[in-house]
Design a protein around this nucleic acid. Structure first.
Lengths: 131, 131
DNA sequence: CTGTATCCCCAACGATACTG
DNA sequence: CAGTATCGTTGGGGATACAG
């Protein structure tokens, strides 16, 4: 547990208060979160389906990331009736659904520059030469 | 340094390869990055101005975050001529400028739900009651 | 003014064994 | 099937002293 008296904790909270931008970044920071939300949006709504899509994730880590996304109300768990052992579906909330296009634009942003879009500084119009 | 043989490193790289979404999230993950990019976009382009805007950040941390943003070509450093000691301006590249509206939409996304927008699950139309 | 060097602490990721 | 418990390792944030 992060200590509530630490500067670390205080800094985090003050940033969250300053602007929702910071808590939003915090909600999607986590190695697998973007990919998990994406796969669930495509209908991979079971634990084992996500494991298949993310073959290198450990059970403990997947469970943790799902719980964090649930705590942020990005997804919810629903039990599938009359199944033994009980099956669980992961469903995006409207908050989670609203996140998807934002993650898409992040994806496109990164992709356009990874694909060779020139980096320039608008202030001086000089092209940056990346090593 | 993260060891290149570790599973940790391999997982990170495979996610970056899988989709730019993941490397983009990685670029903006870092406690102060969103706020730094925002303040620079408003014209706070000096180290000491950023320190004023972010009073709780330590010099070491600010320098680290700026260097990471520079490594991702989101900003560049420009020396101010004929200054002793030498002054540095931080300028957003076009890549950095393109990031700003995405961070804004992230901000609005978080804000709308923080402000009381109802959380529902589109699949079943049930309203979620958050404690 | 804009950093670097050093050290401490904690949280995230990961591996594995176990459970209802 | 969908987890929990535990533990090891690493990396990020922070404080402080020092430097060009």
């Amino acid at each position: 547990m992060r200590k509530k008296e630490s500067t670390d904790y205080a800094n985090e909270q003050s940033l969250f208060q300053l602007c929702e931008r910071n808590s939003a970044i915090n909600m999607i920071s986590g190695r697998w979160k973007g990919q998990i939300v994406y796969y669930i949006s495509l209908g991979n709504d079971r634990f084992h389906l996500l494991q298949q899509k993310l073959p290198n994730i450990s059970e403990a880590v997947l469970a943790r990331q799902l719980k964090e996304l649930e705590n942020h109300a990005i997804l919810v768990k629903r039990e599938i009736p009359d199944t033994i052992p009980v099956g669980i579906r992961y469903l995006l909330t409207n908050k989670g659904v609203d996140l998807v296009p934002i993650l898409d634009s992040l994806c496109n942003w990164g992709k356009s520059y990874a694909d060779g879009k020139k980096i320039v500084v608008p202030a001086d119009n000089n092209v940056i030469d990346l090593g």
